[in-house]
Design a protein around this nucleic acid. Structure first.
Lengths: 208, 208
DNA sequence: GTTTAAATTAAACAGTTGTTTAATTTTGCG
DNA sequence: CGCAAAATTAAACAACTGTTTAATTTAAAC
């Protein structure tokens, strides 16, 4: 896969990400993108070939580097629970920075039959799960984590909580009285992240 | 809001639900629906007014009765933790039966600015939150639940976990070795539900 | 400066979109 | 029956869809 994108291509990808996040993949037209990017409609086809291939390029562009971050985390000299907390923080931060593309990836794409570079994305998910497993097994070996946790179900709880919060943004803005974009993002970085960390910690440690 | 739908209207709603679930709201055309339902294109506009109002009618059609179920649950003579468990079971079961429309509601729709003539749906969410609050406050009064829980964040954890699991179906089918549709749904009804119940219980009870 | 390739453009293409119209058929009621 | 309301239809509507074409401009190399 080519990764040598020029400035204009990257500009297009960034605007595509924003619009996909706002209005969905189907809800965003190439003309929307080209208008926002102040380029000609034909440029998208010229650079990426098609709308779908544009999405494919966007996925590859945005998912690079995560695996390395996780491996580094595992090798750090920290208590297991601290690693878990850091992993959650890392996840939430990354999701929140790339919320557009991750939403498409996790939800909109999951339902389409089309299989683009889906394998590469599945690989990322498996690799992430492996990293999580390593940390938890370490904690179990040290006797601080329960041994009957279903590890693959932790990811849905971590990511799902974030996504559900993000997808119901207008609702939570209202009931939590988060009036500005800044206040909302700040709430995610502090309270929501803490909530998820607390939830996972309780689940891993609490004995019936 | 009128609730007197005739057979033909209900037939249209059911097919719309299937197609929306399969291909998304934007990805489904009125012609797709009318073709599948073997009716004329104009009938959708004739009965519902517009595509958006069709969705609105679908929401109302599918979400009726939930509020009553929750109120009944609250009034039951059960321990708070048992009520929470039942509430989670009720949620997951309902979501799983109506997964098509709930997916649209929670994810696809939430991101659109234009929509949200769906006050009725916001009302449902608020009402659900109120029910959850009542149960938890009861548990707090009895001294069995922690008092520093952020109640509005429980819903994202409960529903988000389910949705993330459901949206990444192909992935979890593979890594959990759930080969049939039945095995998958069974896993949701037993293991996943239990996981969520355990998670929320731990969060509500576990003291640092 | 000339040549050649890349970048950019406006226009056209062939479909599809949601919705409306006006005509026709079906239905229910006296 | 007759007749009005409801249901159903084909057709048209204008706007939008992703993509392609062919012409033009820009950039780089010689």
């Amino acid at each position: 896969m080519e990764n040598d994108l020029n400035d204009k291509q990257i500009q297009i990808l960034k605007i595509a990400e924003t619009l996909f996040a706002e209005k969905g993949f189907d809800g965003t037209s190439i003309r929307d993108i080209s208008k926002e990017a102040k380029i000609n409609v034909a440029m998208v086809s010229y650079y990426f070939g098609s709308k779908e291939k544009l999405l494919e390029a966007l996925v590859l562009f945005k998912t690079s580097g995560l695996k390395e971050q996780l491996v580094n985390l595992i090798e750090e000299n920290l208590e297991p629970i601290e690693k878990i907390n850091k992993l959650i923080e890392l996840y939430i931060n990354r999701l929140n920075c790339n919320r557009g593309i991750y939403r498409i990836l996790h939800f909109e794409l999951a339902s389409k039959k089309k299989v683009l570079e889906l394998e590469s994305f599945t690989d990322i998910k498996k690799s992430n799960l492996k990293s999580l497993e390593l940390i938890i097994q370490e904690g179990q070996a040290k006797g601080v984590f329960r041994k009957d946790v279903i590890i693959p179900l932790l990811t849905p709880t971590i990511l799902g909580t974030y996504f559900h919060f993000q997808m119901n943004k207008p609702f939570f803005e209202e009931i939590l009285d988060l009036k500005t974009e800044e206040a909302y993002n700040n709430y995610i970085k502090t309270d929501l992240t803490k909530h998820i960390q607390q939830t996972i910690k309780a689940l891993l440690i609490y004995e019936n």
